[in-house]
Design a protein around this nucleic acid. Structure first.
Lengths: 230, 230
DNA sequence: CTGAGGATGTGACTTAAATCACGTCATACG
DNA sequence: CGTATGACGTGATTTAAGTCACATCCTCAG
């Protein structure tokens, strides 16, 4: 299933590229659909393709020996993931899973290598993407290393909030998923959310959480938001 | 102070490059010395230079609001760090500090940009370095997210061991520094090391730790070693 | 309407690990 | 020599957060 160049332009990495180049990239890509819960690639695989989210949500996770899994990142429309094994890295360092019905554009590993040699602009885009990921993962490392669980949950709420109307943020994740993303367990999330509600910082409604006072969720240090990983 | 092309070839990233290219890169580099404890760059700075360790040790750390600092990585001879802000990332995501008297080769940000456009082979080397870092940071995220403190200390012992003679591994770090690298506090390191000694897994001597049974330190899941970050 | 299954609430308990508050032991240095 | 000074050892205490065990509620298919 081919990828339409007009659609491809909706991905930020390709927005500023000349039309001709976008077309040549689109010709190398494949459109793929994933069902909710479906695994896109698993940690340890060698697949070096680059994936772009056109519709839906994809989460990047690592699961460890003890069975617990740690969410690294949630990818939304326009984000890019994968591609780590492209340049001699042995294999994918994490697993990617579709959270809902998702449409992804795939740029196969071979095509990336081809573009690398023939298209310097794209290389810059690629380096940009990798740099962003490094920043994000460095941040994750800090968050995991020295923030408390409550701070991590707050951070997740802010990071994964959607903004349907102005002045209105809602989070549409189950407690279970929030727990996975913030590296804790469901019960702790439940308790902390209830605490936040009693403090008037959020409102819990059926199936979603409304953020009333985003500033109160901010960690001690102010942070520039950034998004992207693995 | 210029960099000698012969010396530059000792850095793995440049080992496989044609002599001519190594020379042109060496011409763009600067040799710099750092004293023990000296800061090379701090988190938040915009400097986009690439740093290569020629001699000595450099640690990459993040320090967070509560004052605790989390070591991400220890860079040894031949490793490369820095360069994150090169491609539109706002600033360095972590701090770099020389641990001992160190000699580094610097490739200024402008030179990297110049090489990117004129030298596709170097771009591949760059992407390789970035990929490695992504893998490493993803691993750090897992370690911090779902390993116990004892496992993290064990991991540090293995990661930062030196091998002066065959069949002999020693770690020359104070408990304090081990604590920083494994994201805990000194007392916990002390207790855990004593426990390991009682189990005959290590021997503690004045100023260093001898690893007697490396296998016993391995975490539940076997791991390929890799080294590099930010 | 009704039962099943998922998502959520909550109390009681356990535990890893941080914190506090010391004491000890080197080595360094006037 | 004595005495600083930093590195190390260790008990007692506290606390955050994970675990267990249920109760409750919502929603949706049949």
């Amino acid at each position: 299933m081919p990828v339409n160049p007009e659609e491809l332009r909706e991905i930020p990495a390709f927005r500023d590229l000349p039309v001709g180049q976008v077309q040549s990239v689109a010709a190398l890509m494949v459109r793929r659909h994933f069902a909710p819960g479906q695994i896109i690639f698993v940690e340890g695989e060698k697949s070096g393709s680059l994936w772009f989210v056109f519709e839906g949500h994809v989460r990047i996770i690592k699961e460890s020996s003890n069975g617990r899994l740690q969410g690294l990142c949630l990818m939304t429309r326009g984000k890019c993931f994968g591609g780590c094994p492209l340049f001699d890295l042995d294999n994918n360092p994490a697993t990617a899973q579709a959270l809902d019905s998702a449409i992804l554009f795939v740029l196969p590993g071979g095509a990336v290598e081809h573009l690398r040699q023939h298209n310097p602009d794209l290389v810059k885009a690629l380096l940009h993407i990798y740099s962003q990921r490094l920043g994000h993962l460095a941040r994750v490392s800090e968050v995991l290393g020295s923030w408390s669980v409550s701070e991590r949950i707050n951070d997740c709420l802010l990071t994964y909030a959607r903004h349907p109307a102005r002045q209105q943020s809602v989070v549409e994740l189950t407690h279970e998923k929030l727990a996975a993303l913030s590296g804790t367990v469901r019960e702790v999330v439940t308790r902390h959310l209830n605490l936040l509600e009693r403090q008037g910082i959020i409102r819990i409604e059926s199936g979603h959480i409304v953020i009333l006072n985003a500033d109160a969720l901010l960690p001690p240090c102010a942070w520039e938001r950034q998004q992207s990983a693995v």
